[in-house]
Nucleic acid binder design. Sequence first.
DNA 1: ATGAAAGCGCTAACAG
DNA 2: CTGTTAGCGCTTTCAT
Lengths: 339, 339
Amino acid sequence: MTDENRRSLTLRDVSEASGVSEMTVSRVLRNRGDVSTATRERVLKAAKELGYVPNKIAGALASQRVNLVAVIIPSLSNMVFPEVMSGISAVLEDTGLQPVVGVTNYLPESEEKVLYEMLSWRPSGVIIAGLERSDASRAMLEASGIPVVEIMDVDGKPIDSMVGISHRRAGREMAKAILKAGFQNIGFLGTKMPLDHRARKRFEGFTEALAKSGVEIMDQEFYSGGSALAKGREMTETILKRSEELDFLYYSNDMIGAGGLLYLLEQGVKIPEQVGLAGFNKVELLEGLPRRLATMDACRREIGEKAAEIIAKRVAGEDPERIIELTPKISFGDTLKRR
Amino acid sequence: MTDENRRSLTLRDVSEASGVSEMTVSRVLRNRGDVSTATRERVLKAAKELGYVPNKIAGALASQRVNLVAVIIPSLSNMVFPEVMSGISAVLEDTGLQPVVGVTNYLPESEEKVLYEMLSWRPSGVIIAGLERSDASRAMLEASGIPVVEIMDVDGKPIDSMVGISHRRAGREMAKAILKAGFQNIGFLGTKMPLDHRARKRFEGFTEALAKSGVEIMDQEFYSGGSALAKGREMTETILKRSEELDFLYYSNDMIGAGGLLYLLEQGVKIPEQVGLAGFNKVELLEGLPRRLATMDACRREIGEKAAEIIAKRVAGEDPERIIELTPKISFGDTLKRR
DNA sequence: ATGAAAGCGCTAACAG
DNA sequence: CTGTTAGCGCTTTCAT
């Protein structure tokens, strides 16, 4: 407010204000080495009075150390990544490391750009969603020389480390559970999948397991964009009008599953007697629905925690396990029971 | 993978590989000044082959310029901030500025820490949610000398700039609309509010406008934590059991409103004949509900856009308007109609 | 327990 | 169009 163009305070200003060398000020502010209590207090007082905020840019350049962990995810709005983030934050909290988020919107070119941008700040580690990426992105990560944890998915080969679940297996397990419950006429509803590799893998695992039992998907329906809940309704209406014999609908995520559930209840369809349902992700939202939708826990928070642990340990010079596969559990809820 | 402890590439490496001075390499990589097409290509080739990623830490220190905008928000999971973020990103996209997100979990101490951490990277600007903050946070922001935009709320005095809506007014408008539609026995359901100033202001505006018409809130119910949808159900059941004469429920957010709506529909309550409902935020989710819940648009995306514009202009040396009040509009939906 | 000197990797400013 | 020089604000290292 006072004068717009003043430069910000430096160590030197604090040094002068406290009558102590810059070096000692630096030591006090970082709690390093021995400093007498008297000078320490003098310095702290001066720093506080001036409102000094250290310049991490200079600090990082001098020390060749940056306490940042780049976290690169496809989307914020997803309900899935906030939970991963909270796992990461919780673990990094007491390590001196700090997460910095970059969002790619599921676009490989965008991922490249975000990655380049973040790596140019020389973070201590990278946590990045998925295993599929462009050659350029892969090259950057390899060349960076820092720990890289690829998360969410373990169906593939990591650049360095990975923690996640097998989406193929998740799809297979769900298929088995559905068949075991006695459903035979199964429909699939999901996102258009070129961009969403994990949904694609679930779909592949799902159809594969059905095939093993001689069952084929009876019908399918895809969407992109828009309100997932509303799309779930629409798609459910569409697919059931087209294939009346369907007795089970497998949704690629809980939101569209919830939309389908609401629609079917309105139509007076008996669930699961007439039609069974399942989604994926076990989002909190489901707890408030009129029926508990069957779903599968994607271990989102735990993935964040484990990934952060790997980075923290590697930064600390340890050599933790680099591949961690978590096991999702099916929640049968009210919509996946023996007919 | 090859050798773990190699330092990362520098301008010097590219300079040597291309036989051009560091300075020229720097110019090529930043598209600055005139460089002959021949050298430019030689440099680009060398940089690409080596896999060089510039060190922004050094660049920022030398140029005293950081292309980062600190965005400080209370929560990611909220449905509200992802939309604000997308407005910010969209505008910053073509300015060379980059948003960096910090999350405070609605805790003032946490806000202080996050702010300190971010300011120590000397960002070009700060966008921060809310107008209420600790003296220390306020002092840091004032001392930083960079543009600061406080967002979401305009009921108060900004440190520098603000863009948002008046939550007090939003509460008043909703009260007027409800009275005008003929409801008289009104209940309020919301979060415990010590932390959520904007919800508190809506509540205050709401009760104030009711009072002007001689109406008092008949009953109220608060929650904290847990699945908002589920809480909305529970609270709705609780409040209606306690106060059977209620004919309208005003929820402090759409998620709990949606929970209430689902609950009432299950109970066979006629909406809005027996009970009218309204929420706040106009979240996308509502589009898939069995009835359109009345709500009020919080202009989230536009807030993000305007805030980013202010930062971008200020960084560019312009002097834009520093106070922007947006006007939320009521959506009457199916749950706020004349009885 | 404290200080002085050197330099992190880059860019601004000025030469040529 | 290209190169040289001098820092940016810190921390490392070595002295005292």
